[in-house]
Nucleic acid binder design. Structure first.
Length: 284
DNA sequence: CCCCAGGTCGTCA
DNA sequence: TGACGACATGGG
């Protein structure tokens, strides 16, 4: 299928390289190709329009949902840019960011793998998992692979996972997969909980701590903006911009979170993403 | 050889 | 609670 849309606040590079997703890759012409659910899709910006080119499973409805097209990002940026000059600059820099509605299960496993890891390697591991345990999809003569279902991934032993290069995360991915596949952990229940409760429930999964839980809440279909994932980059940018005191407070996550709460309010998750992308691209 | 990467977990005070 | 080291792997 092919679809052309005029969309405000939509820049492929900003969306796919702001750290929220791991299955999108840049093509030579600057477009991006990726896989979500059973869809393979190429996204390109041409003279202000967004061109979507995908396999037969892609529909406009799925695109609207996945790319969060029913949300007014101009309004969010306007709101955040009123906070201070830092956010003004950060939202201008990443003005084409949209927070994707990614599959909850896939997001959980992806961010467990992200722990103490770097983005290129995270992408490589997820690709290997998909290739080995997910269904093949053909698109333009090439093979792509769906991210495996819990049932499909539950066939992987700890040893299998280790061989894919997961490092010390092999046991955690294994245990969490078993918990979800057996329904001991109910994914659907998360949607019924408020953010705080959902956070606590996510923490019961193996390999999910505060940072990973917040990323899951922010980047999946759970879509909570009232979280503030703190990793090394966010800590760095928050220290640089807002904390000019002793080293003790600089290292304190709760202190950073409190500043984020009071400054950014219920949009703190969005603020985090603009700041993360801004800071990381600058030092790249 | 070092250090680092979208941290979590177990342990110990 | 809060600090601290271990934990695999690959790239710079």
């Amino acid at each position: 299928m092919k679809l052309v849309k005029e969309i405000d606040s939509f820049e492929p590079k900003d969306i796919f390289e702001c750290g929220q997703c791991f299955r999108w890759n840049r093509e030579e012409n600057g477009s991006y190709t990726g896989v979500f659910s059973d869809c393979v899709l190429n996204v390109e910006k041409c003279e202000g329009n967004i061109v979507f080119n995908g396999n037969e499973n892609v529909t406009e409805e799925k695109i609207n949902e996945y790319f969060d097209l029913n949300r007014d990002y101009s309004k969010i940026k306007k709101e955040l840019s009123k906070v201070d000059n830092n956010l003004l600059e950060a939202t201008n820099f990443g003005s084409g960011i949209r927070i994707l509605n990614q599959d909850l299960w896939e997001t959980i496993i992806s961010f467990i793998i992200s722990a103490n890891n770097n983005i290129p390697r995270i992408k490589g591991i997820i690709e290997k998992i998909s290739k080995k345990y997910g269904k093949e999809i053909k698109f333009n003569e090439k093979s792509y692979y769906e991210f495996p279902t819990p049932k499909e991934l539950s066939k992987a032993t700890v040893e299998d996972l280790k061989n894919l290069g997961l490092g010390f995360r092999d046991v955690r991915v294994y245990e969490t997969t078993q918990m979800i596949n057996s329904k001991e952990f109910d994914l659907d229940e998360l949607y019924t909980l408020d953010t705080k409760q959902a956070q606590e429930k996510l923490l019961t999964l193996s390999g999910v701590g505060p940072k990973v839980a917040d990323c899951i809440l922010l980047f999946s279909t759970l879509k909570r903006f009232d979280v503030f994932p703190i990793d090394v980059w966010v800590r760095r940018v928050m220290n640089d911009l807002y904390i000019h005191e002793q080293d003790e407070k600089k290292l304190n996550k709760n202190y950073i979170r409190k500043i984020a709460d009071t400054k950014f309010g219920t949009l703190e998750g969005m603020a985090q993403q603009y700041l993360f992308y801004w800071k990381r691209e600058q030092s790249a």
